[in-house]
Simulated scan of single mutants.
Amino acid sequence: MMASLFSSFDPSANLNLPLNWLSSFIGMLLIPPLFWISPSRSSLIWNKILTTLHKEFKILMASNKMNGSTILFISLFSFVLFNNSLGLFPYIFTSTSHLSFTLTLALPLWLSFMIFGWINNTIHMLAHLVPQGTPPALMPFMVCIETISNVIRPGTLAVRLTANMIAGHLLLTLLGNTGNSLSIYMINILIIVQLMLLTLESAVSVIQAYVFAVLSTLYSSEVN
């Protein structure tokens, strides 16, 4: 039971090859239509969303020194959102349900921010370790606390995304496996509950992609 339950999160496919990871790159097939002379309605809606995200990320960064850097976080949002949404379809591998995938996104991003900050803005980074108004007696403890909270940031980014994606998928799988032993009346109720959970999971996919991108933007704004 447990083996079959978690088999949907197994990255290996036939011949023990990790072919399921290829689902993360299917979105690249959708990029060419964005460059047509006469874009479709879906392209116009998506461009409107990206423009809104660009304005919001620009406000969060609050710096004119990093012009164009919002493209990085918009691309990150789009990539995570695509993989989250793709996992809602049956028999399609959910890449963002694995720590190996989310840590690959979060760790290099955070590490690049830290290297850039400590090399170019060393005094500013040191000032972040002691919040303003901290009593002198508590400063050593605050440095330890702020250092630990800073180090665990990539882990919290990755675990938050992974846990939210796994939880909803497991709940849908558990409820779906009970359908064989239910009556017709209960199956109708189960289908309604499954549709409601699927709607909730669709919202969670968008929210988690937005949270991942916004937190990455806030972490980058602290190094300037």
Rank of each mutant, 00 (worst) to 15 (best):
M1Y: 07
M2Q: 08
M2P: 00
L5F: 10
F6G: 05
S7W: 04
F9R: 07
F9A: 07
D10K: 10
S12T: 09
P18H: 09
N20H: 13
L22W: 06
M28A: 13
L29D: 10
L30E: 14
I31V: 15
L34R: 13
L34V: 08
F35G: 05
W36T: 06
W36C: 03
I37E: 09
I37N: 07
S38K: 00
P39S: 03
S40A: 14
R41V: 10
R41Q: 13
S42Y: 07
L44Y: 04
L44P: 02
I45F: 06
W46Q: 04
K48M: 04
L50E: 14
T51P: 05
T51V: 05
T52V: 04
L53A: 14
H54T: 10
K55H: 11
K55D: 13
E56N: 14
E56D: 12
E56I: 09
F57C: 03
F57G: 01
K58L: 08
K58Y: 08
I59G: 02
M66I: 12
G68I: 04
G68H: 07
T70V: 14
L76E: 01
F77C: 00
S78C: 11
F82D: 04
N83K: 02
L88T: 03
P90H: 06
Y91S: 14
I92W: 01
T94Y: 05
S97Y: 00
S97F: 01
L99G: 00
L99Q: 00
S100N: 07
S100Y: 09
F101V: 06
T102N: 06
L103T: 01
L107R: 02
L111T: 15
L111G: 04
S112E: 04
M114T: 03
M114L: 11
F116A: 09
F116H: 09
G117Q: 01
G117A: 08
W118G: 06
N120L: 12
T122R: 15
T122S: 14
I123V: 12
H124N: 07
H124Y: 05
H124T: 03
M125R: 03
M125N: 02
L126M: 11
H128Q: 14
V130Y: 01
T134P: 01
P136R: 05
M139R: 15
M139V: 15
F141D: 05
V143S: 07
V143W: 08
C144M: 15
I148G: 00
I148C: 08
I152N: 04
G155L: 03
T156S: 15
L157D: 02
V159P: 01
R160A: 12
L161V: 04
L161W: 03
L170Y: 05
L170Q: 00
L171C: 03
L172K: 14
L172E: 12
L174F: 09
L175N: 13
G176N: 15
N177L: 14
T178L: 11
N180H: 12
M186D: 15
I187K: 10
L190H: 07
I191Q: 13
Q194L: 15
L195N: 13
M196Y: 08
L197W: 10
L200I: 08
A203N: 07
A203S: 13
S205M: 06
V206N: 05
I207D: 06
Q208S: 07
F212N: 01
A213L: 03
V214R: 09
L215G: 00
S216I: 03
S216D: 01
T217C: 13
Y219R: 06
S220G: 05
S220R: 13
E222R: 12
V223W: 01
